[in-house]
Design a protein around this nucleic acid. Sequence first.
DNA 1: GATGAATGAGCGTTCATTCAT
DNA 2: AATGAATGAACGCTCATTCAT
Lengths: 222, 222, 222, 222
Amino acid sequence: MQNLHIQIEIDSELYSKNPDSSELGRKIISKSIVLIHEIGFENFTFRKLGKLINSNESSIYRYFENKHTLLVYLTSWYWSWIAYRLVFATTNIESPEERLKKSILILTQQIKEDNSFGYINEVLLSEIIFSESIKAYHTKNVDEENKRGCFKAYIAVVQRVSNIVLEMKPSYKYPHMLISTVIEGAHQQNYFAEHLPKLTDTSKDSEAITDFYTEMVFNFLK
Amino acid sequence: MQNLHIQIEIDSELYSKNPDSSELGRKIISKSIVLIHEIGFENFTFRKLGKLINSNESSIYRYFENKHTLLVYLTSWYWSWIAYRLVFATTNIESPEERLKKSILILTQQIKEDNSFGYINEVLLSEIIFSESIKAYHTKNVDEENKRGCFKAYIAVVQRVSNIVLEMKPSYKYPHMLISTVIEGAHQQNYFAEHLPKLTDTSKDSEAITDFYTEMVFNFLK
Amino acid sequence: MQNLHIQIEIDSELYSKNPDSSELGRKIISKSIVLIHEIGFENFTFRKLGKLINSNESSIYRYFENKHTLLVYLTSWYWSWIAYRLVFATTNIESPEERLKKSILILTQQIKEDNSFGYINEVLLSEIIFSESIKAYHTKNVDEENKRGCFKAYIAVVQRVSNIVLEMKPSYKYPHMLISTVIEGAHQQNYFAEHLPKLTDTSKDSEAITDFYTEMVFNFLK
Amino acid sequence: MQNLHIQIEIDSELYSKNPDSSELGRKIISKSIVLIHEIGFENFTFRKLGKLINSNESSIYRYFENKHTLLVYLTSWYWSWIAYRLVFATTNIESPEERLKKSILILTQQIKEDNSFGYINEVLLSEIIFSESIKAYHTKNVDEENKRGCFKAYIAVVQRVSNIVLEMKPSYKYPHMLISTVIEGAHQQNYFAEHLPKLTDTSKDSEAITDFYTEMVFNFLK
DNA sequence: GATGAATGAGCGTTCATTCAT
DNA sequence: AATGAATGAACGCTCATTCAT
């Protein structure tokens, strides 16, 4: 895959200066993933990141207005990448059932191997998304950010999979609710499995979560 | 209901000094709900709360170690109250189907009227829970807090409704996953309806959310 | 010894209410020794002490104006007790050499056994004196406290041993300097032995310190 | 001396950012000496220092982690400077007796004139060292700081003078104890002379202290 | 006399940000 | 364009102390 040189393009709304355009920018992205994963988004600061990349924190401000924007960038990257994987996984497959199944698999499983994109560790990123992405849109200025298109990539993924749902059952009324429930539910159940086991019925990384949500979706489409 | 004098008892693990035991304590609870609702939990600080209740922030520390503990207290109060409402709503009803339906209704609808408990505004509290409660257990020390029983009340609610599920279908493998998906899903869809409408298919406060999750649950139990 | 009922009388300047006159007062003394020993005088506060003795911190203020006064009280108790031991150890001994030797031994050795005074743990107290007593008189208001007689007990001990020195060599010009150097030096060397070994030539609790200061004193009196 | 441009180099362990490298840093050092001297180390805070230098306290944190580190820096500077003076005073002198005498003089006398180093007032600094330096190593984390080399400069001075002692009497067992007793003793006797005269036999700044400790050392080496 | 409740003041610290280079 | 230096503002927290009972 590496030699295909697929590049994930991030909307220019999501940064002040494109981090993909410079060595420093790429370092910011790659190390912020490591750091957020390590200490959690709450404790993550530009100062700490600056220290980690041996660069003054003020330099980071050239790329991102604040740590929140950086998180939005990361989630956006993640969803663009998921979109790309969805296309890749469903292309040339006739049966919508099959396509839907494969899509749910992609949406509900955490990444286990880091392989495709140079400076981004997808395993860590996926863990961040599963546990912290909710903070990206749970803020006082969601509305304004949403208007600016900050969540486009996520919305597009939900839309794409919803379309398969509609393909199977054009009359279905709640395709987006269905898919976003799957996505967010899978994130949460993963977290519960690790930290609050009494709220779930599985251990982390088992197939139970995928099974549960797959069944849930297909129940609706019968 | 008011003259029934039902009192919600909160586990002493969840505070340093019982806020229900003094005028100041009750003020802390009642005004913190107002303030968190207004400015969001992120921006909420003891200093601001102190100003609002005309009291020094240091006094608040006598009751709660930090703002996080206060949030945990509020969510715990909320879930104890929901538990009480669940009992009340399902008592004397034979049919488990009926009990389950009523339970899902309670879990998925936001409170519209503030009536029963003196100094607590349940409408605002319910809004806080729907949009901020996730932050109560998404922290670096979930595990330790869970051990200390901080999330007992929530877990008990999930357990109670899971039991009805099992009554209907004793062989069902994922009752907790099912119910926690309903609860968390309803919270999120409400939020989406208000802020990220493209991730859902409804407007806020419509019955769509309850309908969706009710159908979802019963699909599994057929 | 216990049945001799020797009681150490502390000057009333050193407390607001005599701690020896009530159960609570004795608890304050006995537990403050334990607590200061455990966490150090710097981190010691009336609040923590209050918690330890299950009493409100405000009660402690009845006995002592502040934590500093309490430390002064403890050191005063210690020196009164040392005075008593000096008398006891030198009584009926003719030779001033012998008396001086025994005195130096008492001044330079830490207590190993707790035996005589009911609610006071002399072992811990002696450790506190060795490592923290300096803080009792290194303050901005030494002068005023000294005028009020807060350090009488310590001064009396120095005076008593200086008198033996003068007995041996009436012309000696610096008896007080000599004895206070011995006392403070022994405290410090003990501390160095434990924490800054490169500033001394011995390990903790060896006889080297007593030997060194004994030789030092007798060198001057030849 | 000024035109010799001797510079005292402080180990980089002892600061976060070298205060000698900027105007602000030098101001921090020079004014902290004035302020500690005036109000005592106990009452000294970064906030007060910030006000004195018309700078926000947060700026000071760029240089020193906390007020304790700053004190350690000052003592370290002092001992490096003393080391330099010792070298200067003993160089080219044959007789170890003579060198030892001169060394003891330097160790036991407070500085009377501020002459050599630009922004540092040695008179005030020496007074601080005499009365407050003990607090630099009487803390809960001496051991860790000692490991990090925070007290190197002091240890080196003790070592240097101990070596002269050993030169005169190679068999002597306690050279470090001897010299550290001289240093710490002189500090204390000075303090006593000013504040607790009954513990000494001299007034401040007389030659008695130097005489006493000189005699004490030479008594041992006979 | 002892206690519980409450508070004001201030400390140490960090963050996000700006300015000058 | 990237960086280093500096800062204002606020946060979380604790202490010593007072007041009312």
